[in-house]
Simulated assay, not measured.
Amino acid sequence: MTRVTNLSRYKSFRWLWRKDPEARWFWLRAYVFSRANLQECVMDNLRDFGV
C-alpha cells in the first residue's frame, strides 16, 4: 500500500476524485486552477473517515 506522503499530485487528485464523490468538482478545480497541496487534503479526508 502506498503511503499518502508518497502520492504524487495527480495520484492524490485521483484518490480524492474516487473517494469523495460529493466534492468531486471542487477537487477538479483545485487540481487544475490552484496549486493546492492535495496530499494534505487526502490526509484530512482519511482522518474524517476515521482511518
Rank of each mutant, 00 (worst) to 15 (best):
R24N: 06
M43D: 10
V42I: 08
E40C: 03
R35C: 03
L7Q: 09
K11L: 11
R29S: 05
F26N: 07
N37I: 01
V32K: 04
E40F: 09
F33D: 00
A36M: 07
V42N: 01
K19F: 11
A30N: 06
K19P: 00
Y10I: 07
N6V: 06
L7D: 03
F33N: 02
N45W: 15
V51P: 00
G50I: 04
R3H: 08
D48K: 15
N45Q: 08
W15Q: 03
R14Y: 05
A36N: 08
L16R: 00
G50F: 05
W15K: 03
A23F: 02
W15H: 08
T5C: 00
N6M: 12
G50P: 02
L7E: 08
R9N: 14
M43T: 08
F13G: 00
F26L: 15
A30C: 09
S34G: 07
Q39C: 08
R9A: 15
L7R: 10
R35P: 00
A23S: 13
R3W: 10
S8L: 09
G50N: 10
A23Y: 03
C41Q: 11
L46K: 15
F33I: 03
P21R: 14
R18D: 10
L16T: 02
L28P: 01
S8N: 09
R29L: 11
T5Q: 09
F26R: 07
E40W: 09
S12M: 04
R3G: 04
G50W: 04
F33L: 09
E22N: 10
F26M: 14
V42Y: 03
M1H: 13
Y10R: 10
R9P: 02
L28C: 06
Y10V: 09
T2R: 13
G50H: 07
S8I: 08
D48Q: 11
Q39N: 12
Y10L: 12
T2D: 08
D48I: 11
F49N: 05
A23K: 15
K19D: 07
W15S: 02
M1T: 10
T2W: 05
K11C: 04
W25H: 11
S34Y: 04
R24E: 12
R47P: 01
F26Q: 11
T2K: 13
P21A: 13
V32T: 09
Y10P: 00
K19A: 06
W27Q: 02
T5N: 06
R9I: 15
L38W: 01
